[in-house]
Each structure stands twice: as C-alpha cells, then as structure tokens.
Amino acid sequence: MANGTPERILLAHGGGGQLTNQLIRSHILPHLGNEALAPLGDSACLELGSASICFTTDSYVVKPLFFRGGDIGKLAVCGTINDLAVAGSRPLALTLSLIVEEGLEVHTLDRILESIGQTARQAGVSVVAGDTKTVERGSADGIFINTAGIGIRLPGVELGLDKFAVGDKVFINGTIGDHGLTIISQREGIRFESQLESDCAPLAGLTCMLLENVQGIRFMRDATRGGLAAVLNEMVEGSRLGIEIREADLPIKPVVQGAADVLGFDVLNVANEGKFVAVVAPEAAEKCLELCHAHELGRSARVIGEVVESRDLPLVELRTKIGGRRIVQMPYGRELPRIC
C-alpha cells in the first residue's frame, strides 16, 4: 500500500461511495476526460445538430438475479431510463448487451428477457440494438447486463448543481431503502415478517410530467448505490451549499427500518432503484408534491429538507427526531456490494 491506496480493486470500489469517486477521478478521468464527461452527471448531455440529447450507460450485476419486486432485466431497463430521466430528458431507446455464463438455464434467460421487454414497453422505450457474449463457467455469475440509453432533452429545462439557492426545498418521490434491504435480506436468506419489496421502477413518466408542468426545478438525481446519503453529499459537494434534512420527514417503511436495524445498516446509505431526489424553488415545492401524489410512483413523496448556507465545508446535516443534530457522511462504499 502506498499512501493508503489499495494496490488492487476492492469490492468497495463499486459501491457508489468515496472509493468509487476516487477510482473515477484518479484512474478514469485522467485518460478520458472531456467536456461532456466532466460534470460526471447521470447522463452526458450532447448537442447533435439541432437536437439536444442525453446519453448514458450502466451495467448490472445484481445478485440474486430475481428478487421481490424485480429482476436483473427490469433493473437494467429502469436504471438506465432513470439516469436519462433525472438529467431532464425523455428516454427514447436502449441498447442491450448480455454477458451470459456457460450453464445458465435458457428458461432463466427467457424470464429475464421477458421482463426486459415488458418494462421497456411500459416505459415507452425500444431496445434498438444489442449484443450477446458467453463466458466460461465461473467467469460470470449467471448473467451480467449492460444497457445504454438515449433521450431527448425536454425543451427549456436547465438542471444543475449551480442552480441551487439557500431556501430551496429538497424532496424525494417516496420511501427509501426498499431495494437494498430487499436484496441483502434475500441474499442472506433472512425473512422478515412483513414483506420487503424492491422499489425498482422507471421514473421518466413522473420526472417528465414534473418538468413539463412545474417551473423552478433546479436539479434531480436518482438515489441508487450509496442511497440518499450519497446523493445529498454529491449535491453539497457540487453546489458548495449545505443541506439540512429532517429525520421525522424521511419516508421509511417500518419493515425497512426494522430490517436495517437488524442488519446494522443506516437506511440513508441503502440503495434505491425507483427514487429520485429533487431540489426545487420554495414556491414550486407544493405543486411538485401535488403532482407527485397523484402519480403512482410518487404517492409517498415528501419535502425532506432545505438548502442552507454552508460553513467552511458544505455538509449534509440531519435534524433528528429528538431535536438533536448530526451530519450525514458520504458512505464509504462497501455496505452492500452487487446491489444493482
């Protein structure tokens, strides 16, 4: 180890926390840096002729392949659609690459593809190109999937961390922690009395509806790996302003909180697959909530906090239920490997 930097890739490098960030900044950007990549957003925004498009890609290695509320196929469609959606675009088309391990049952592959087709149709996107590769037994874990996606930016929509202002409201479209705790409890064979279910869902319908009907939406990001804590920390780092959230206003299902307590996880750090955090102007918050509440994927939407002045170091702070305060750190990254 030189200066504490690991010589080999650790599982935590893929966790969406500090180590992932370090890997990208120290090893990827120096070789590939360019204007479109530099903001490290959920999608790249490109001007092609007169069209303004968003373009993104993501790979899916979730274990187990099938989980309550979804499967790797549904996840592969939703994850990429959501990255396009929170960048302020309407997703149009996806590509699909399958890396299949020798020995995977054809029936399993069929189930995954059926799920991919169904989710894409529901979300109104087409899978327009693809690739299949097979690898020797032991070189993959059943199946890995990569999808890339393209979307058209909604006209007049300008989202960015530089748009934040003190007093802006922070809201989320529903309960947190459902996906991560479903996966980990299913993986470890722990059954909780009530049912945990992944929130895996395509968010573009909801985000487009909000962006088309509400003025004053400053920024959106889906809260996947690293959970709400990671997204909020990215926001304060990028905006140089602080965020204060209220524990009492965080939407968390009791079964999720219970599972997190048993397993020793902080729900704030746990992955979601159907949630986005938005920062909106104070006067826009009420209309956002109203529209969300009328949408299937936003019924539990809540304002959870505000953008606040920053001290020297921009922090995410939590006002606890008992009136105390504490900071919310960027998660390290190893909490839950192979969650998506």
Binding site: I322, G323, R325, R326
Partner: peptide, 9 residues
Amino acid sequence: IFRSGIRSI
C-alpha cells in the same frame, strides 16, 4: 447516541 444526536441536546 451519535445517530440520534443525543450529545447535542
């Protein structure tokens, strides 16, 4: 104790 901010109250 830390998570609930007890020290701060």
